[in-house]
Simulated scan of single mutants.
Amino acid sequence: MTDTIHLLVAKYGLLAIFVGCLAEGESVVILGGFFAHQRVFVPWQAFAVAFSGAFIGDAALFFLGRRFSSHAFVERMRQKPGFSHAHRLVNAYPNSFVFFNRYAYGMRTVAAITAGLSGISIPRFLVLNALSALVWVTLFGSLGYVGGMGAEKLLGEALAEHQRLIVALVAAVAITATAWYAAHHFFRKGKKNG
């Protein structure tokens, strides 16, 4: 069973990283960095795929907000609790907003659409988005890569491939659950105060 899972990760893992990075994706990038260290993926390929997914995901949402502002999906995003706050921030600090929006867990979709609805020029958005994606992938991918080094030191270099997979999946679930809980707690607290 673990051999089959390992084969699937090796075969479709880069595609999964790309798809995961289209949306939030921090845990996916960390997992990609971990597997890059474990030699399941070639490191530069894992980082390039994660960067592409992150850049394309935010760019697509930006263009959705820019070109299809009356679309039902965009209208739903406008109803989200963080939209009005994001709208104020993008108008007050457009460069910082575009660069840092992907670091606010749970806000990336709303933030990219909000940027599309703002007056930020397309070239400026694309440059800031590319720089932000590069820093984001480097930061979270490196966390995963260093985590792979730590797992190897902790569990030994002879760590079997299926054991690496189990360690990585447990870490990914823990990171995702922690991030979800933190974001959920933050938004619930914001609703009570707002």
Rank of each mutant, 00 (worst) to 15 (best):
V98T: 08
V173P: 00
H71R: 02
Q38Y: 02
A130F: 09
A172F: 07
Y181D: 02
K153Q: 11
F41S: 03
A172T: 10
G106C: 08
A112P: 12
K189D: 08
A54I: 05
R102L: 07
E75K: 13
N129R: 09
E26T: 12
G57T: 11
V110P: 12
I120F: 04
L31V: 11
G33K: 03
V40P: 06
S84H: 14
G82T: 09
A111H: 09
Q163T: 10
Q38S: 12
K192P: 00
G57P: 10
A59W: 07
G150M: 15
I30E: 04
W44K: 01
V135D: 08
H184S: 15
N129Y: 06
F68D: 00
F55P: 06
F100C: 03
C21H: 11
V146K: 06
T2I: 05
A104R: 02
V29I: 15
V167G: 03
H184E: 13
P94M: 04
A171D: 00
L128I: 06
T4E: 14
A158K: 10
R164C: 09
L128T: 07
F55N: 09
A104K: 02
W44V: 05
A177C: 02
G32P: 11
V167T: 10
R67Y: 10
G156S: 04
F63S: 07
G190R: 15
E24D: 10
E75H: 01
S96R: 11
K189F: 09
A54R: 06
G116M: 08
L117Y: 10
F51V: 05
L143I: 11
A158H: 13
K192I: 07
G194P: 01
V28P: 01
V170E: 00
F34Y: 15
I113S: 12
L89A: 11
K192H: 03
Y181H: 13
L31M: 15
R88N: 09
I113K: 14
F62Y: 13
Y105L: 02
T2N: 14
R67V: 03
G33T: 07
Q79P: 00
A48I: 01
R108Y: 07
I56Y: 10
Q79R: 15
Y181V: 02
A171M: 11
V170F: 07
K80N: 14
G53Q: 12
H162L: 01
S118R: 07
L22S: 11
L22Q: 10
C21Y: 04
K153V: 05
Q79M: 05
A130V: 05
F125K: 04
V127K: 08
Y93E: 07
G13N: 06
K11C: 00
M149Q: 14
V40L: 14
I113T: 15
A59S: 15
E161K: 14
K80M: 14
G57C: 09
P43V: 03
V170H: 01
